[in-house]
């Protein structure tokens, strides 16, 4: 992996006015607030990353992004994101691969497709988010106990193995791999779901479930079309 981040030159502020740092970063105590250099150097770029993403079928229209912000304006989850969808598009196009793949925007995307519907340049933003998620998983860049990639991973793992998922097992595995304390807080919901038959206690599988694994393997090769 190339240059992971700028060699963060950290400055400890002893006193003085609040520095111009992104809101939310750093604590309320100004005296210990870290100031980081936010400048990007050409060496921080992963030259070709943007082009490579735009070569994936469905992602080509990214070339035409005019940075109007419609995607962020319609996104129901943009209010929680560290980088707005528009910024993710700009960072991708500018080849800042690490910044993009580390952003939790790609994981917050709920795939509602509002951005794709409204984009005046007809950029398939949701599809690009999927592509970025895929690349983040391939590169192993995502928060370890972040539930969304864990769920995605467990889900596909289970489908590959049994042909379908067993909700109870999936949920238990999800909690174990992310935050098993949270499972305790949700015990009542789990009980209700089991009582109403929503949670099967037996592993569900399809007949000839080996075929589906072979099918998925075939789809998976090659993962990314090389240029």
């Amino acid at each position: 992996m190339p240059a992971t981040a700028t060699p963060a030159e950290r400055v400890e502020l002893k006193s003085g006015p609040p520095p111009a740092a992104p809101a939310g970063s750093g604590g309320r105590n100004w005296s210990t607030r870290r100031i980081e250099r936010t400048i990007k150097y050409e060496s921080d770029r992963n030259v070709g990353f943007g082009r490579d993403v735009m070569r994936v079928p469905g992602c080509e229209q990214l070339e035409n992004c005019i940075q109007c912000g419609t995607c962020s304006g319609v996104c129901p989850l943009s209010i929680y994101m560290d980088h707005s969808p528009r910024q993710v598009m700009a960072l991708t196009r500018a080849d800042f691969r690490d910044e993009v793949l580390r952003s939790h925007t790609i994981w917050l995307c709920a795939s509602c497709y509002a951005c794709t519907v409204e984009c005046p340049q007809q950029i398939r933003i949701t599809d690009i988010m999927y592509e970025l998620k895929q690349r983040a998983i391939d590169a192993g860049i995502y928060p370890r106990r972040f539930p969304i990639p864990v769920l995605a991973h467990e889900f596909t793992h289970m489908v590959r193995k049994h042909g379908r998922i067993t909700e109870l097992v999936l949920v238990i595995r999800l909690f174990l791999k992310t935050d098993w304390f949270a499972a305790l807080g949700n015990w009542r919901l789990g009980l209700d779901l089991t009582r109403t038959g929503r949670f099967s206690l037996l592993t569900e599988r399809i007949r000839r479930h080996g075929d589906i694994a072979r099918m998925l393997d075939a789809v998976d090769q090659p993962k990314h079309p090389s240029p």
Binding site: S78, S84, R86
Partner: peptide, 11 residues
């Protein structure tokens, strides 16, 4: 009006 203020970077 729901909009991203793209210069400020906030919705």
């Amino acid at each position: 009006i729901r909009v991203e203020d793209t210069l400020a970077g906030v919705v």
